[in-house]
Structures are given as C-alpha cells and as structure tokens.
C-alpha cells in the first residue's frame, strides 16, 4: 500500500526564507515580528550548548 512505501534514500525538505518569515510571523506574538526575524537573520547562531530551552 501507499503507506508502506519507502522514502527515497535521501529526502531534503527545504523552505525558502520568505516561507520561514511568514511561518515565524504566524507563530510569534511580537507586534514587530518582521524586525525580530531580521535580527535573527543578522545574528550568528549561538553554539547548541548556549541555545536556551523554552522551559
């Protein structure tokens, strides 16, 4: 059946920056989510150890 079909050996799901921006705006409570998104884009990613958990 279709449900048991195997995936190709390597799937790559990619979203463009404009899609990520709109998704971020959809989820963000910030009144200026556009500016917030730009700041995230302009800043470097902290090391995984420094990335803060949400809880």
């Amino acid at each position: 059946s279709v449900g048991t079909l195997r995936r190709p050996f390597r799937t790559v799901t990619t979203y463009g920056i404009s899609v990520l921006r709109e998704a971020f705006k959809m989820l963000s409570n910030s009144p200026d989510s556009d500016a917030l998104f730009n700041r995230l884009d302009e800043r470097d990613l902290p090391s995984p150890q420094q990335m803060s958990p949400s809880v």
Binding site: Y15, V19, S54
Partner: peptide, 19 residues
C-alpha cells in the same frame, strides 16, 4: 525544548533545510 526564536534561527542558518 527550544523557543521559537532559537528554532527559527537554526532553520535560517541551515538554509531552511529541515533534516
């Protein structure tokens, strides 16, 4: 267990590649 900002930035810096 990460916030919206951290996850979004991780996606940005990985060129939007989910895997």
């Amino acid at each position: 267990h990460m916030d919206l900002l951290s996850v979004t930035q991780a996606l940005l810096k990985n060129s939007g590649e989910v895997e």
